[in-house]
């Protein structure tokens, strides 16, 4: 088991290196000059050259690459030309906001998707099943920016139940920094007022972000439950007199959770990389907005940093998923 984890961690390192190579190459063949962009349209050649020297952009590419990699290993992702702050500092500010959204969305996606999938499977080909599946397809098909605006109109403008944008009211100070996720930090500091405010702000964006994830989890879980429910051991469990609810929720669900778990892992990575639309609609200061505005400005260090961070996150989540496989299914425990 620990050997397996060690091997996976080593493999993760290798994959991250690959990721660095790709992002570095792409950043450098992109036809834009970060130094010129940073210097502004009225800058003289000398000013641009100064900036280029300052950021080490005048060095040969291999040297820049080695510098960057050494930096990454030491936890230095370079400096953003636009914000002039170190990328790690920016990420520490923006990433928790996105992570908060993604965690909340994932909780919604799993918490609704799994039970709805189970219900759909048990009531296969009845009205509730058709309705659930129709809703699921619709949720995937609706574009996030459009649906987000619709929800804003309904819940924030008409009903005035929820705020339209941001993470907190303007007048409210953020809770003391622990993780940067306001929901967690406010609870940690015992500021329940701030917590409920943060929750109200996060509700709509998390809901919109969770829909595609919810729908795919629902569909995978439904398909898998239908298959498992027709398995021989389910017939046997029923013949042994075990109550129907327990057969479905314990005996069948644990078998059906394996593919659902894989879907959760994939969706996690997908959500981290696709928050930008939701962040734009709800004015949520996360890494999606940060990455896109940096890319538009031709500021590549932040883009590379965000890519690495999402990549690392994706790999860690999938390692956890693989380890959970072993917890759920004893047949996989001794596998190499």
């Amino acid at each position: 088991m620990w050997r397996y984890v060690a091997r996976r961690v080593a493999l993760t390192g290798l994959m991250l290196f690959g990721l660095i190579c790709i992002t570095f190459t792409v950043s450098n063949i992109a036809p834009s000059d970060p130094a010129a962009l940073a210097a502004g349209p009225d800058a003289t050649r000398d000013m641009v050259a100064t900036i280029r020297r300052e950021y080490g952009l005048d060095r040969p590419l291999p040297e820049q690459f080695i510098r960057y990699v050494t930096g990454v290993v030491q936890g230095d992702l370079g400096r953003s030309i636009v914000s002039t702050r170190p990328v790690t500092q920016d990420l520490a500010r923006f990433f928790p906001a996105t992570l908060e959204l993604v965690v909340l969305s994932m909780l919604l996606g799993v918490g609704l998707g799994v039970p709805l999938g189970m219900m759909s499977a048990v009531l296969k080909n009845t009205a509730p099943d058709h309705l659930t599946r129709f809703a699921a397809v619709s949720l995937v098909a609706l574009p996030a920016f459009w649906f987000g605006i619709l929800l804003q109109l309904f819940f924030s403008v008409w009903l005035e139940w929820l705020p339209t944008s941001g993470r907190l009211e303007v007048a409210t100070a953020p809770p003391p920094f622990v993780t940067g996720m306001y929901l967690f930090d406010s609870l940690f500091a015992g500021q329940f007022n701030t917590f409920s405010q943060a929750l109200a702000h996060a509700a709509l964006p998390a809901l919109v972000l969770s829909f595609p994830c919810l729908a795919s989890i629902l569909r995978v879980n439904r398909a898998e439950m239908i298959e498992v429910l027709s398995a021989d051991y389910i017939t046997a469990a029923r013949a042994h007199g075990i109550a129907r609810l327990r057969v479905i929720c314990v005996h069948a669900l644990r078998n059906a959770m394996l593919p659902t778990l894989a879907m959760i892992g994939l969706r996690w990575g997908w959500m981290l990389g696709s928050t930008v639309l939701v962040e734009t609609v709800f004015d949520w200061p996360g890494i999606g907005l940060y990455a896109v505005s940096s890319a538009i400005a031709g500021d590549f260090k932040p883009v590379m940093g965000v890519t690495l961070l999402i990549g690392l996150n994706f790999m860690v989540i999938n390692l956890i998923v693989d380890l959970l496989y072993g917890v759920l299914d004893p047949r996989l425990r001794n596998a190499p």
């Binding site: 398995a231 021989d232 051991y233 046997a236 005996h251 078998n255 004893p330 047949r331």
Partner: peptide, 8 residues
């Protein structure tokens, strides 16, 4: 096939 594979 009549024993549940994931429970002891």
């Amino acid at each position: 096939t009549y024993l549940n594979p994931v429970f002891s």
